[in-house]
Design a binder for these strands. Structure first.
Lengths: 187, 187
DNA sequence: TTACTATACGGAACAACGTTCCGCTTAGCC
DNA sequence: GGCTAAGCGGAACGTTGTTCCGTATAGTAA
C-alpha cells in the first residue's frame, strides 16, 4: 500500500473536477483540455496525472448522475403500473441526463480509442438495468423478446445527439415513438 | 463568363473524385485530406481549389446516390399499398445509403462549421421528399400529423451512426421500431 | 529547524488534423 | 516562341489530445 496522496494533489483533483464541470456546462464535454487546465489554474500535465485520458475526467464528473440513473431502474419497475411503462420512464430519465450534458451523447458513441473507458463505464452501469426492464416487459408479454438491451441503449444514445443545440430537433419525441414501436411489435 | 477550365484541372478533379471515393470506402468519410491527396498523386492545395472544404468533396462523391434516393420517394408512393408502407420503404432506402458509407451518418450530424454545406445539401434534396411521404401518410390517417419531417430525418440519421462498425448494433432494427411507433401514434 | 526524497507540477514538445498561402509550373492562345 | 492567367505542390499555421522531463514542494526524519 502506498502512502496517501499529497495534500496539494488532493486539492488539485477536486479543483479540476469543479473546473471541468464548469467547462462542460459552458462549452460542452468537448471543451479543450487546455481550457479546463486554465480554468483550474493548472498545467495540462496535472490533468493527465489525475485522469489518464479525457474520458476518465468526463466519467469522474458524471459518475454520480450515472449511478443515480442506474439506481432509478428497479425503483421505477416496482412502482410503475406496467413494466413497459417503467421502461419508458427510465429511458426518458436517461434521455434527460444525456441531453442536458452538451455533446455527451456524441462523445459517448464516438468509436475513437480513448473513449473506450467512457463507453465501458456507461455500459457496465446501465446495461444491466436496461436488460432487467426489458426482460420484465417481455415476460409480461408487452414487448417482443427480440429487443436487445445494448442495441436499444445505443440507439437511444444516438437519438440524443444534437438535441441540445438544434432547436428544431427534439430527441424526446423520437424516443417516445421508438418506445411505442417496441410495444406494438409485441404480439 | 470565364473561359472553360483548363484540361489538367478537369483531369485532376475527376482523379480526385475517384481517389476520394476509394479512400472513403477504405477508411470512411473521415479519411484525412492528405491521404486522399496522396492517393490522387496531388498536393493538398489542389483539393482545396476544387473543393473549398472537405464537405464539398463528400457531397461531390455522393451526389448521384443522394439524388437517386430523392427520386425514389415519389415512385415508392405511387406503387406502394399504403403511404405508411412507402414511407417505411423509403426510410429503409435512406438507411441503406447511410450505413454503407462508413461514418457518413456521423459526419452528417456533426455541427462543426464546414459541414454546413453537407448538411444543407442533404436537407435540400431529401427533406421535401420525406415531407411529402409524411403528408400522404397523415392524410390517409395512418400517422399523426404531428411528426415533423426534419426531426424524423435527423433521428433516422442519428440512429445510423456506428451501425457499420459495431457488429452488435443494427440501426435497421431500431428504425423499424420507430416506423412502427409512428403508426401506432395515429390512433 | 533543517535536509532529504518521493511526489506532484507546469508547460514545452510531439503527432495528427483541417485549412491557407504563395512561389513555381504549365496549358492555351496570339 | 513567348506571354499570361490558371493551376499546382507542399510548407506553414492554428487547433486538437497526449507525452515527457526539468523543476518545485509536501511530508518526514534527524
Amino acid at each position: 500500500m502506498s502512502r496517501p496522496k499529497r495534500a496539494d494533489a488532493r486539492r488539485n483533483e477536486s479543483t479540476l473536477l469543479d473546473a471541468a464541470a464548469a467547462a462542460f456546462v459552458d462549452s460542452g464535454v468537448e471543451a479543450p483540455v487546455r481550457d479546463i487546465a486554465a480554468r483550474a489554474g493548472v498545467g495540462v500535465g496535472t490533468i493527465y496525472r489525475h485522469f489518464p485520458t479525457r474520458a476518465d475526467l468526463i466519467i469522474a464528473v458524471y459518475r454520480h448522475q450515472v449511478d443515480a440513473c442506474a439506481e432509478a431502474g428497479p425503483a421505477l419497475l416496482a412502482r410503475s403500473p406496467s413494466p413497459h411503462a417503467a421502461l419508458g420512464e427510465w429511458l426518458n430519465l436517461f434521455v434527460d441526463f444525456l441531453i442536458t450534458k452538451h455533446g455527451l451523447a456524441g462523445v459517448l458513441q464516438s468509436d475513437s480509442p480513448g473513449f473506450e473507458t467512457l463507453h465501458t463505464y456507461f455500459l457496465d452501469r446501465l446495461l444491466p438495468v436496461c436488460a432487467e426492464l426489458l426482460a420484465a416487459a417481455a415476460s409480461a408479454g408487452e414487448i417482443s423478446g427480440g429487443v436487445k438491451a445494448y442495441e436499444l441503449m445505443r440507439g437511444i444514445g444516438n437519438l440524443c445527439i444534437g438535441s441540445e443545440t438544434d432547436p428544431d430537433y427534439n430527441a424526446r419525441n423520437l424516443v417516445n415513438y421508438l418506445i411505442t414501436g417496441l410495444r406494438q411489435t409485441s404480439e
